[in-house]
Every structure is written in C-alpha cells, then in structure tokens.
Simulated scan of single mutants.
Amino acid sequence: MKYSKYIVYIPVIIITVGLGLFVRAKANWFPEVFNLYAGDALYAFMMHYIVCLFTNKTPLYKAVIALLICYVIEFSQLYQAEWINTIRQTPPGKLVLGSGFLYSDLLAYLIGITLAFLSDYFLLSHKFKR
C-alpha cells in the first residue's frame, strides 16, 4: 500500500515539536547534558521532516539539506543587528532562530539529523516511491 508522505511526515513534525516543547518546559526533570542537546537535536529532526515534505529526493539528500539549513540558522546567530535581535526576543523568533551561537548546537544538529536520516531511510522511505 502506498502512503501519502503528508499522512506520515506532518504527524512526525507535530509530535517532534510537542516533544521539544515538553523537554524545554520540563528541563528540571532531565540531566543537564540532556537539556543541552535534546532541544537542538529535536529541532534538527523536525527540520529533516520539513525538508521531506518538499522533496522526493533520497534520504541522504534530505538529511544534507536539513543539516545545512540548521547550520545556516545557527551561524546566523552571529549576526547581531537590532532588527533580528528584536525578532529573536519573541517566543516564535527564539524557537525558530535561536538566541545565541554555540558550537555544541552544531553537534546536536548532527545527532538529530542522523537520527532522522536513519528513521527516514529504514522506516519511511520505502513507503514512498521516489
């Protein structure tokens, strides 16, 4: 049976966002090292599946594009113009654009993209003919 990618990818995105918000809200429940990486890894995981919605390329292609998007957003945090800092101070701006550059975020994105790639490659991609 062939599935529509939207039936699978949109719920994955929604669940990932919910899980990320839960982890942020309940940070005191988790070890500090988990809090340092989990939100960013989930952000990258979500970004992979957003990319999946817009392309039917291979899982590796989607993973590379999603990782590049995450890295561009992270490096954009080095740009400190007043207008973008004003956006970053809003809750949606902080969630989407982040608030400060950290090298550790780059590792967290790589972890999240790797997990998303593996789940896409082994669990989902065979259901959608490219």
Rank of each mutant, 00 (worst) to 15 (best):
residue 3 Y to V: 09
residue 3 Y to H: 14
residue 4 S to A: 10
residue 4 S to E: 14
residue 4 S to T: 13
residue 6 Y to G: 15
residue 7 I to V: 14
residue 9 Y to L: 02
residue 9 Y to A: 01
residue 11 P to N: 10
residue 11 P to E: 08
residue 11 P to S: 04
residue 12 V to I: 14
residue 13 I to E: 11
residue 16 T to I: 05
residue 16 T to P: 06
residue 18 G to Q: 11
residue 19 L to M: 09
residue 19 L to C: 05
residue 20 G to C: 03
residue 20 G to D: 11
residue 21 L to K: 15
residue 23 V to S: 07
residue 23 V to Y: 14
residue 24 R to A: 00
residue 25 A to V: 05
residue 25 A to K: 15
residue 28 N to P: 12
residue 28 N to W: 07
residue 29 W to S: 08
residue 29 W to I: 04
residue 30 F to T: 02
residue 33 V to E: 07
residue 36 L to Y: 02
residue 37 Y to D: 14
residue 40 D to R: 08
residue 42 L to C: 02
residue 42 L to K: 10
residue 43 Y to M: 01
residue 43 Y to D: 05
residue 44 A to L: 04
residue 48 H to C: 07
residue 48 H to D: 10
residue 49 Y to V: 00
residue 53 L to K: 12
residue 54 F to E: 09
residue 56 N to Q: 13
residue 56 N to W: 09
residue 56 N to Y: 08
residue 57 K to W: 08
residue 59 P to Q: 02
residue 60 L to T: 07
residue 60 L to A: 03
residue 62 K to L: 02
residue 64 V to W: 11
residue 64 V to Q: 09
residue 66 A to G: 06
residue 67 L to E: 15
residue 70 C to S: 07
residue 70 C to E: 13
residue 71 Y to N: 06
residue 71 Y to R: 04
residue 72 V to P: 05
residue 73 I to N: 04
residue 73 I to S: 01
residue 77 Q to F: 00
residue 81 A to D: 08
residue 84 I to V: 04
residue 87 I to P: 13
residue 88 R to D: 01
residue 90 T to R: 05
residue 90 T to Y: 05
residue 91 P to M: 02
residue 91 P to D: 07
residue 93 G to D: 10
residue 94 K to D: 08
residue 98 G to P: 15
residue 100 G to M: 10
residue 100 G to D: 13
residue 103 Y to M: 06
residue 103 Y to P: 00
residue 104 S to D: 13
residue 106 L to C: 02
residue 107 L to M: 04
residue 108 A to C: 06
residue 108 A to H: 14
residue 109 Y to G: 01
residue 111 I to H: 11
residue 112 G to P: 15
residue 114 T to H: 07
residue 114 T to S: 09
residue 115 L to P: 09
residue 115 L to W: 10
residue 118 L to S: 12
residue 121 Y to Q: 14
residue 122 F to W: 13
residue 127 K to S: 02
residue 127 K to I: 01
residue 128 F to D: 05
residue 128 F to N: 04
